[in-house]
Each structure stands twice: as C-alpha cells, then as structure tokens.
C-alpha cells in the first residue's frame, strides 16, 4: 500500500524547520512503523537526500527511545503501544500521516524528529531514587512488601521515560512521569524515609525544567504506552502537599 507522510524536517536546534511531504509506495502491512521509516530513509539515501533522523533503539517497546506524534497522537493511534510496536496493518492505502517531534519547551528539537529529553534525567537526579550505597543493604527478605503494594509500585515503575505524556499534554506537563517515579518509590517501605524530600525536590525540578502544570485532563494516561494511571499524579500531589504542610 501507499502511505503519504508529512514529516517535520529541521537540521538542528537553530534551524526553523518545516513539514515536508514524502510518499512511501511499497508499504507492507507486516512492517512496523519504524521499518516503514527505514524503507523511506533507504529510498532517500539512494536519491541523495538526507534521511529523516528519528530516535529508536530496542524496537520492542521497552527502552523508551522512540516516539513522535502521528496525526496529533503521541506514538500513533493504537493505545498502549510505542511507535516501534505499531504495525502498518493499522493503516490503509493512501493514508496521510503527519509526523512531528514531541513539542515542549523542556524538550528542544535536536534534529527532525529527535528531541532532547535530558530534563527527565535531571528530575530523577533531583530525588527519584532511594539513597542506598552499594553493600549496605540488609537481606532481601528483611523488608516485607505487601503484594498489592509491590504490584501497584510495579505498575508505576513500568514507565519507560519516552516523553509521550509531555508531548500529548495540552500543558506540556511532566506530571505523569514525575508522579510515576514518586508513586513507584513511595509505595514501597524502602522508599518511606525520603518520601517527603523526594516529592518536594522532584516537583521543584520539573518546574525548573519549564514543564507545564497538570490540569487533570488525562491525555497523558490515554497515550502512555505503559498505561500508567492518573492515580500516580494524585499521589504526587498528595505527597507534595503533605510534605509542604508537615515539614519542620
């Protein structure tokens, strides 16, 4: 089948950039979306045109490297699916697709569909951890974790840091990402001692990175490839408010 692509092309962070139209004539429906872009790129190289830069790595939906907007939806139309796991059988002959990079002040465009997501790393560095130096841990079974807590914690910990939540959020807020880490660690007994400081430090860092505010719209939850729930944001809000009120 034939697919028509409109792709954001931008040489570097200083370039203005624009949408460019391409046609991919021989798309097989068994292809993944990124394989379709590979085919386009091979074609462009043979025509002496620069291939489209896009981020990707594991191509099995776990590393969180890939992702772009497809017709205004982060990671494309299929819920719970990263772009690399989206297959062309979900599209049809002649479909026109608009591919744009994640847009947020905190995610400057590096080139074409590639953005800089290091703001996420800095949010984690601000407090998204449990401070335990190597070697100081007690036996694994010394701390019991109720199964339900372990499961809920795992639900939140499944975040792959792809940035789709920010990209889709009308406010470009990183609340789902930040909340997921706060919930992951805050649901475990090991995470309790630093829970208050963690919430305050991570929320402050997100603000500093120019992410917007959460207005409880739910776009992030709808496009999250790991289906992380809005509940983690409430948890973050609660932890932050409690820490602000009760801190000495």
């Amino acid at each position: 089948m034939k697919i028509i692509l409109h792709i954001w092309r931008q040489r570097n962070c200083k370039d203005k950039g624009k949408m460019t139209r391409y046609e991919v004539p021989n798309v097989n429906q068994e292809m993944s979306f990124l394989e379709m872009l590979d085919v386009l790129n091979e074609d462009l190289i043979l025509k002496n045109e620069e291939p489209v830069a896009f981020d990707h790595d594991c191509r099995e939906g776990i590393c969180g490297t890939c992702g772009c907007m497809v017709n205004g939806m982060a990671h494309g139309p299929l819920p719970g699916t990263t772009l690399c796991q989206l297959h062309m059988r979900h599209f049809k002959e002649g479909d026109e697709l608009y591919l744009e990079p994640w847009r947020a002040a905190a995610f400057p465009v590096v080139k074409d569909l590639v953005v800089d997501r290091s703001a996420f790393d800095r949010i984690i560095a601000a407090g998204g951890y449990i401070s335990v130096a190597t070697g100081s841990a007690p036996d694994g079974n010394a701390v019991l974790v109720p199964k339900e807590n372990a499961e809920c914690s795992m639900d939140a910990a499944a975040c792959i840091g792809c940035g789709a939540c920010v990209a889709m959020c009308p406010n470009a807020s990183a609340a789902l990402f930040t909340g997921a880490k706060i919930a992951h660690l805050g649901l475990l007994p090991q995470g309790q001692p630093e829970r208050d400081q963690r919430a305050i430090a991570m929320v402050a860092q997100a603000r500093q990175e120019l992410f917007g505010s959460c207005t409880n719209i739910g776009e992030c939850e709808a496009v999250c490839p790991k289906e992380i729930k809005l509940e983690v944001i409430a948890r973050m809000n609660g932890d932050f408010i409690r820490a602000s009120l009760t801190g000495r």
Partner: peptide, 22 residues
C-alpha cells in the same frame, strides 16, 4: 546473594508472595 539485597533496598519492585516475601 548481595545483588538481590542491593536491588530490593533500591526499590526494585520484585514479585512478592501474599505474605510480602520475595
């Protein structure tokens, strides 16, 4: 043995039994 201890302390959400044990 030490690896499991270390990872649990870091907050790796390993699967648990209903009793809370690993």
């Amino acid at each position: 043995l030490n690896i499991i201890d270390q990872c649990v302390a870091q907050g790796v959400p390993f699967a648990r039994e209903y009793s809370g044990y690993l």
